[in-house]
């Protein structure tokens, strides 16, 4: 078993790593790069806690090999705030108390950001279906949905 050398871009930074062929992108992020903001809730693509974007496309990093990241642009929760300035979604999640334990929060934020980039004015139903792959066991989703819709409204006004 020989490791694979991968050159990729993560949150705008050029990153190189070695990974085993069977290692997922999530394993690489967490165990090799120390980026533990992406979480493993299931490892089977059913919970969304490991959500990242690859070339702008929302994916589960547990369902992608680290080797596949060669030459791609990866965005994770760690790249969402601009320095000390939170993304409107992050701010709205705090204002709405849209997290309780917070384990699903990074994945939901990454997914919600991808939604608002595609659809700046989603309906409640569109938001609920877009986020159906992000399990949250604490909140019952109510405040999560409100926070996303509110962030969308604020971002529309700002633009």
């Amino acid at each position: 078993m020989s490791n694979i050398h991968v050159t990729t871009t993560i949150n705008g930074d050029s990153v190189e790593y070695l990974c085993a062929p069977e290692e997922t992108l999530l394993d690489v992020l967490r165990d090799r790069l120390g980026m533990t903001g992406s979480k493993e809730g299931c490892g089977t693509g059913d919970c969304g806690a490991c959500s990242v974007t690859v070339d702008g496309r929302l994916v589960c990093s547990c369902l992608m090999l680290g080797a596949e990241a060669e030459g791609r642009e990866i965005a994770t929760i760690e790249g969402m705030a601009a320095g000390e300035v939170l993304h409107p979604l992050q701010r709205k999640f705090l204002e709405h108390a849209a997290l309780q334990c917070g384990i699903c929060t990074p994945g939901i934020l990454v997914a919600a950001k991808a939604l608002l980039e595609k659809n700046p004015d989603p309906s409640e139903e569109e938001t609920r279906y877009w986020l159906a792959g992000n399990l949250c066991r604490c909140t019952g989703y109510d405040k999560v949905i409100r926070a996303v819709m509110d962030a969308a409204a604020e971002m529309r006004e700002a633009s």
Partner: peptide, 9 residues
């Protein structure tokens, strides 16, 4: 099939 995330793949 699957979630929005799965749709990306």
């Amino acid at each position: 099939i699957g979630s929005t995330q799965v749709q990306g793949r």
